[in-house]
Design a binder for these strands. Structure first.
Lengths: 222, 222
DNA sequence: ATTACTAAAAGACGAGTAA
DNA sequence: TTTACTCGTCTTTTAGTAA
């Protein structure tokens, strides 16, 4: 495995055109590009040459430096890693958090036929009357925020008996192999560290969950 | 500017899924991925957290780690650098070498009407009767090899007076602002550290070149 | 099992120097 | 000007330890 500093130097040489042909360098010029002393830059060049990542041609007042095939291979591997990070085939996110006791609101809404029918229609399962509430781990909060911008399913509200039932949005997900969905009111603000998950069965019982158990929620879309 | 080691660790966390959600890590597991000790891995995590490139959520037996927006920004910048290295708009290569005295062969061939006409037709200039010979710097030899695989213009040979004149291939290039072309026999093997360049005028005189002067040759294509 | 500290060992850094 | 050495210093690493 190539040293992190060597990789940094090699990348800089490539950025300066070292893959397209020999570039004119001095230890000082490379050093100032990298924010290191000429001595250290010189040592980096020696190290890269010894690993055959560059070839050098010394002149009295500097040197020609070019990236070799091996050097370019290293850089391409690195490039491939970044492609893997940023261009996954299908987008997939994870949330982690602890099971908490809800306020029973979910159960109430899930008992209302209008919502029940809509969820069945869009999610492919008839929601169990009750939600699993999860307090997100701090590390998950940013992901939760990112999820706001993807394709939630909107379920409209309605008015009945002079009472207004608000719209709800839902996002299919998986929890330990079960098809589930995150649900959330469309309009009203919701605590950003809590999610409510519904499923076709009672998750608490099916997964033998107790308060404070850690659990992961997987969201996939394309 | 982010430290090279920190970047390495951050990239590994991203590869493990840290941009898609919190991942379960221990200093030991990260250390073994990176080939460093758990102590160092722990310190790296602390450093990344202090720079706000990751958020952590400690548990008794490990930790959840997720890449923050700033951390992802750093990685994207790195990604952009690699894109710049490998996806330039138009391909461009450089060769560097020293002017040497040729054997006068070029002058002979360039005086033959058949070649002269063909070069004029394909290159857009009437070649000066003479070639500039360049001994490539060792750092350029790999680029020269890469150039074998791109689009050279083939100029056919011919037979006259019971003598066979071989085919020649040529590649347009620029030398200090002058439109030129590298020429080389199509069939016979040619020393890989020497190139012959033709132009519409006598380059030696026009550029005031003497033997051993260093010169760069620019090849651009799309 | 963890994390993260302290302290000794190893290694990297840059000033100075020679070619 | 270069490159690349030596050398003293400082940083980083890892082993050991405690929580």
């Amino acid at each position: 495995m190539v040293e992190a500093e060597d990789l940094q130097s090699l990348k800089m040489i490539a950025l300066l055109g070292g893959c397209k042909g020999p570039i004119w360098l001095s230890s000082q010029s490379l050093g100032s590009e990298l924010g290191i002393s000429p001595q250290t830059a010189s040592r980096r060049l020696i190290a890269l040459e010894r690993q055959q990542f560059i070839v050098r041609s010394m002149k009295p007042d500097g040197q020609y430096v070019a990236v070799t095939r091996e050097g370019e291979g290293q850089l391409k591997q690195e490039y491939a890693d970044y492609i893997r990070i940023f261009n996954p085939k299908r987008r997939q996110y994870f949330l982690a958090g602890a099971v908490i006791s809800g306020l029973g609101e979910g159960r109430y809404y899930m008992s209302i036929p209008h919502y029940k029918e809509q969820f069945s229609k869009y999610l492919g399962f008839e929601p169990f009357p009750g939600t699993l509430n999860i307090r997100l781990d701090p590390a998950s909060i940013r992901i939760r925020q990112d999820l706001e911008h993807i394709g939630w399913i909107e379920i409209s509200g309605f008015t009945a008996d002079e009472r207004t039932f608000g719209g709800v949005k839902t996002l299919p997900c998986r929890v330990r192999g079960h098809d589930c969905a995150i649900v959330e009111p469309s309009r009203t603000h919701y605590p950003e560290d809590i999610i409510e998950v519904i499923a076709g069965c009672g998750l608490r019982k099916a997964l033998d969950l107790n308060d404070n158990d850690m659990i992961e929620v997987e969201i996939t879309y394309d």
